[in-house]
């Protein structure tokens, strides 16, 4: 029997390979639970979890909430709009007030990178990062890797390509360390303005040519262009981006091998990914969403069990 090495899930970079394997194994068990007629277990019935969403979300929020309910935890939901945050309350005060009502775990999304790490230093509850600014989105990274693992059986030696807005992507921030830790090879592609300057120090390579990059990879994770995070123009226009880095069926058909396509959602159809690919058999998009619940159940279960 083993336990996670961390009390919080702030980022993949803090986890060891054994932690990742434990999470994947546990997620597999929970995926079985989710196939049953009664998709619920009583494990976390004495736990209260607060979902603090300081930034908009559909998938992640529903996925976390469902995972919590499937584990029989009590949940409270909080979103920044319509709360006292608008009146000027600080993050720490807000969270301490919620914790004063005897909450055991916090799931938090925040637009500032490092917000969950800051909280972890000041409060006692387990914190799970549900995406912080442009830093990390660990449960997305885990569900991406889990979905690939399920399809290919192993991550070792796999060629994994991340396409698009790497600079603003917290998904890339979690995918890159996770896949490297599990022994995969990672390449990124996208317009040079959207690639972080020292990306190669993470152990990945940059290939500006989309076609060459696709020829290399087994799996391509297509990222969303995050216009909301771009305070200046990084690309001339969406049309131009789509022309050079958009993925469509014609392009994929002209590549010599079958590539598995992933997308963390929400998809800008017709920009980074065309419908003829997003809805095709090559796409793992819906499996990713399905696996999200199992992965989040595993993370919640393992962190709660650590006490």
């Amino acid at each position: 029997m083993s336990a996670l090495s961390q009390k919080h899930l702030i980022g993949i970079k803090h986890l060891q390979k054994s932690d990742l394997e434990l999470i994947f194994d546990t997620a597999k068990n929970f995926k079985d639970v989710l196939q049953r007629p009664i998709k619920k277990v009583p494990s976390l019935r004495d736990i209260t979890i607060a979902n603090l969403f300081f930034e908009d979300s559909t998938r992640t929020r529903i996925s976390f909430e469902l995972a919590e309910k499937r584990l029989s935890a009590d949940t409270i939901n909080f979103s920044a709009s319509g709360s006292s945050v608008k009146k000027g309350e600080t993050l720490l005060d807000t969270v301490n007030n919620i914790l004063a009502m005897k909450v055991d775990m916090i799931v938090m999304r925040h637009s500032s990178s490092g917000a969950p790490a800051f909280l972890a230093k000041h409060i006692n509850a387990n914190i799970i990062n549900a995406g912080d600014g442009t830093h990390e989105h660990p449960t997305q990274g885990l569900l991406d890797a889990f979905s690939v693992l399920e399809k290919f059986g192993t991550l070792k030696g796999l060629n994994y390509l991340i396409i698009g807005d790497i600079k603003h992507s917290r998904v890339a921030g979690s995918d890159i360390p996770l896949l490297l830790k599990m022994g995969a090879k990672v390449k990124v592609t996208g317009p040079p303005t959207l690639i972080p300057k020292y990306i190669e120090e993470l152990g990945v390579t940059y290939e500006p040519n989309l076609r060459k990059a696709l020829e290399w990879c087994d799996v391509a994770n297509v990222l969303r262009i995050q216009l909301e995070r771009m305070d200046i123009k990084f690309i001339p226009s969406l049309r131009e981006y789509s022309l050079y880095y958009g993925i469509n069926k014609e392009l994929l058909d002209s590549i010599s091998k079958d590539i598995t396509i992933m997308h963390p959602g929400p998809i800008n159809r017709g920009v980074e990914l065309n419908s003829d690919v997003a809805d095709s058999k090559q796409s793992l998009v819906l499996q990713q969403v399905e696996n999200g619940v199992a992965i989040r159940m595993a993370v919640l279960y393992l962190l709660a069990g650590r006490g």
């Binding site: 029997m1 546990t26 068990n29 277990v41 009583p42 494990s43 393992l302 709660a304 069990g305 650590r306």
Partner: peptide
């Protein structure tokens, strides 16, 4: 996942198939 001593052992219990 149905045990009543979850969180009393100091570490999570590993599940089986």
């Amino acid at each position: 996942f149905y045990r009543d001593d979850f969180r009393q052992k100091g570490k999570p219990l590993t599940a089986n198939e």
